[in-house]
Design a protein around this nucleic acid. Structure first.
Lengths: 189, 189
DNA sequence: GTCTATAATTCGATAGAC
DNA sequence: GTCTATCGAATTATAGAC
């Protein structure tokens, strides 16, 4: 018991804070998610949040690190790329509420919007550019793809529009994939 | 000087409050748009807002009365309906910031989300149902249409994703209309 | 490393004078 | 009909004890 005698729980505490922050930001958005509530959820004192993350903005920045993990489409048959993409985002969205948090904050907070633009530019655009016939059209095509995928996520996971919620994964894929496919590879209209 | 002697400015004040509220809700969302700031913009005292609208929720309810004015599609050639719809919403969105306010609030506030679902059910669904071949498919098709239109509005007017902002009206219509047209009338996949 | 206590703001809402 | 004054509650953030 020389070195690790006293349990240093800082790592665990940090993780608990982050998890609670993601929950709260996802559920309430930036303004209504209070440090106090996050600390209560994490079972620690509000001042610990400040100690570890400086301030509320810093906490959000840490809690909203997004890894979209967009699938590599270069080795997918061209006519299956869109379906693969749609299914990926459905599953991604449903297993990680950070995406909902990012949406909630991105809509009401300029820093959040900037973060979403960053995710788009660094994680979405490059993946789609890899399968885009004309490179200089990639940003536009990626924005179109994003508009449809984010729009479905908005209706389904944030606004809870009943007919959008009621669709199965297969139905969403069947409806959206042809759209995405066209945005990806169809001739510029 | 019997009846209307003293200038009763209540109507003008009410209108000024509403206009300022729409601005603030659109710019800041529900939580950050304060009654004090709205009153300052309107050039009156904060207590007037309370007097006229009871509380903040009442003010938002009044400020977010939405009339989408979706065009009647029953007399439009079937293959032009989608383009008409897309162009209508582009123009509508750019001339009335209430729509942006509704989006900002709908994403972070349950009352706002309920209002958006109401607009969808009462103003969007019926218009699309009128041109939907199979009536019972109307809600699903309307939700798909909404997902694409709201998604583009989100990227373009709220998140300001550069490639989405850079598109002209004609380009947006050219890209989105075939999508909407398929959601409206194509055979259920 | 954790918590108590509190400073400094800011907000929604109310009471009442004019 | 409009404004002044203010209450009570909630927030972020800090200082410091243990």
């Amino acid at each position: 018991m020389a070195a690790a005698a006293r349990p240093r729980r800082s790592a665990a505490t940090r993780a608990a804070i982050l998890a609670a922050a993601r929950d709260r930001f996802a559920a309430d958005g930036y303004e209504r998610a209070t440090i106090r509530a996050i600390a209560r959820d994490a079972g620690i004192d509000p001042s610990m949040v400040m100690r570890y993350y400086g301030n509320k903005a810093g906490l959000f920045a840490a809690a909203s690190e997004i890894e979209v993990h967009a699938p590599d489409l270069t080795h997918v048959p061209r006519d299956e790329a869109a379906a693969r993409l749609v299914r990926h985002f459905l599953e991604r969205w449903e297993c990680d509420e950070t995406l909902t948090a990012m949406m909630r904050v991105g809509v009401t907070n300029e820093a959040g919007a900037e973060r979403m633009r960053g995710v788009f530019a660094e994680q979405i655009e490059p993946v789609l550019a890899a399968v885009c016939p004309v490179p200089e059209e990639a940003p536009t095509r990626a924005a179109l793809v994003a508009s449809q995928i984010l729009g479905m996520a908005l209706c389904r996971y944030v606004l809870h529009v009943p007919p959008a919620v009621g669709l199965t994964h297969d139905e969403v894929v069947a409806w959206l994939a042809p759209t995405i496919q066209r945005y990806l590879t169809a001739e510029h209209p």
